[in-house]
Design a protein around this nucleic acid. Structure first.
Lengths: 340, 340
DNA sequence: TCATAAGAGTTAAACGCTTAACTATAGTTA
DNA sequence: TAACTATAGTTAAGCGTTTAACTCTTATGA
């Protein structure tokens, strides 16, 4: 690989001059520029980024951190949408994206990740933060790596959807349809901050309608389609009076609908099902799913913009964005009689 | 950030010794090791990767390259599965994954990407190669960056599914069900190598059953769910005799099914629909979709293993893996009369 | 006993770039 | 004309590692 020195030799100037020309730092003549550029062309010079990084302390690599709990990282379309948004902005800013999916065991964050954070490889970090037990942001703060979090960590710059509000609206929608026998499918409590917020929102909406949220039947799911199906099955077997099922994500809603249809029920005539996230599939399955739009790509973009703002010394404000209720076919008035 | 020099000073040894201890290169006493490790602990030393990269020429960063055509990169679950497989192996090998999604305009690959390839930032490259018009591998070869391709580029090490065989089996399945009026939904020709192979396989399977593939009605789609729906609509409007629709990916199959159901037809009783890829959703929608399993995660893993083998000087053989036909609910015997 | 080898550690160059500090020249001002 | 400034370019140090080449000490064996 050709080096700066070779370019300098060929152009008959010093390395400093070549460096100046290439970085457009003042004080060289057009003639010199020509000579340098010719030499660059001729020997096909490309700067060595590791050397540049060592010298400047800037790598132009942004770490995108998706904590790996269960295995939702790559199978969750929402995460991929966020990644898409982040990537778009990073590339626009001339940075590369380094993907890190640290395992979290027993509240302990994998050592590899800690090393990476402190290695000087990353100019900044954008981290998904949905795990209250182990903050993936904290090491970044501890070692002075600029970080923006998508989620609920408050010790840093953050961008988030208002999950409380989303939960509230979703529950409100179901209540306004006049459902009173409502089942909820969600993961075991306290493992996921956004989900907790959604549940809080639902609780308050229920209360506002005189319904005791804590008394509602629940089934636990792990976000997967399958767990939505078994969750729905459990709910209906144990509480046949249920007329609506709220799932904290769309994939479980898809599973629930799947189960209901296979059991001979129709959605929403027999049972209303609503989800959360507005993943692409939610508008393609039948019935299309009433859900909360998270605008995940936008979320990723904003997080990336915020990161670059911080890196450029601007001061930034935390952002909490409103979610959007999308009413589709899967929700309707409660049936009047018992299940067929 | 603490440096090697500081560790050396604190431990009362030279930097060379510290380096040896840390990299476990022979010739130091247990006592020295202790001293060094203590110093490392005390000042919280972590090696600077940029410096190490400059010195050794190894960055431990693997570039994962997904050419960005249309916008299928992040919305294609298949791509994400491949990424998952690659990432798993890379992390196991102590490497990080840098995501690159070079735009390809008019057969020209974005300059950024070319720079990245030659920048010395990447120890190796794993590239999805499905675009015959512009090889994303070629720059890697030109500048001696070790690369493995997932796809049809033959100027390098590669891993692929046998798409020809997959196409053949899919068509064979449909023909064995005794369909003779078959529509095909696929993108405009020659833009996607795997798809071309699938079509070739279908052609030969058709011929083996005495059917002229070229004469079959086709509709064009861009892989999206929507395009599958409009494709199916076009096909049935213009060729109401059709009893089966073959889509070259699952998302279009989902769209086709969606359209058919909304038009009052049942799948597969009125029309058989089959897809390709076996994305997660294909088993969750109703009816579940007959398709070809690509085992994409496995594909990614094998590609990564192959890359590391090459990097370690082993010699490797190209891999072509057999696809698997998965028969589900969406395919059945042709209806006997006209469409209802 | 002496040559040899092996072990433990050091010195300093090298990786390829950026940049502060410097020199030299030409142009401007008083 | 002297003093200053702006421009054009050079020199060399520095970024934090690794590693080849070296020194010194101690063990080995004939």
């Amino acid at each position: 690989m050709p080096t700066l020195t070779e370019v300098a030799k060929r152009a008959g100037v010093s390395t400093a001059t070549v460096s100046k020309v290439l970085s457009n730092t003042p004080y060289f003549t057009e003639e010199t520029r020509q000579k340098v550029m010719e030499a660059v062309e001729e020997i096909g010079y490309i700067p060595n980024l590791a050397a540049r990084a060592l010298s400047t302390g800037k790598t132009h690599i942004i770490g995108v951190v998706f904590p790996y709990i269960f295995d939702t990282v790559f199978s969750d379309p929402l995460v991929m949408e966020i990644l898409q948004g982040v990537e778009a902005v990073c590339r626009e800013q001339g940075c590369s994206v380094l993907l890190s999916t640290p395992r979290i065991d027993d509240g302990e964050i994998e050592n590899n990740y800690l090393q990476l954070v402190r290695s000087g490889y990353l100019d900044g970090i954008i981290a998904l933060d949905y795990v209250p037990v182990a903050s993936v942001i904290e090491p970044a703060n501890a070692y002075d790596v600029t970080a923006v979090c998508i989620g609920y960590d408050t010790h840093t710059h953050y961008v988030r959807r208002d999950d409380y509000d989303g939960g509230y609206r979703l529950m409100q929608h179901v209540l306004e349809l006049e459902h009173r026998h409502i089942g909820v499918i969600c993961p075991p409590q306290n493992l996921n901050s956004p989900v907790n917020e959604r549940l809080n929102g639902m609780r308050d909406a229920a209360q506002a309608h005189g319904l005791d949220f804590a008394a509602l039947p629940t089934a636990s799911g792990n976000y997967s389609v399958d767990s939505g199906a078994t969750g729905a099955q459990h709910l209906l077997q144990q509480h046949p009076e249920i007329t609506a099922i709220i799932c904290v994500n769309d994939r479980m809603a898809i599973g629930a609908i799947q189960y209901l249809q296979s059991a001979g029920y129709t959605v929403p005539d027999d049972v209303t099902v609503v989800g959360y996230d507005n993943i692409a599939m939610s508008q393609f399955i039948s019935p299309t799913i009433t859900t909360i739009n998270q605008h995940a790509t936008d979320l990723g973009q904003r997080a990336a913009h915020m990161l670059f703002d911080v890196l450029n010394g601007k001061d930034v404000q935390p952002i909490t964005l409103p979610p959007e209720l999308i009413v589709r076919q899967s929700s309707g008035k409660p049936r009047t009689g018992p299940l067929p």
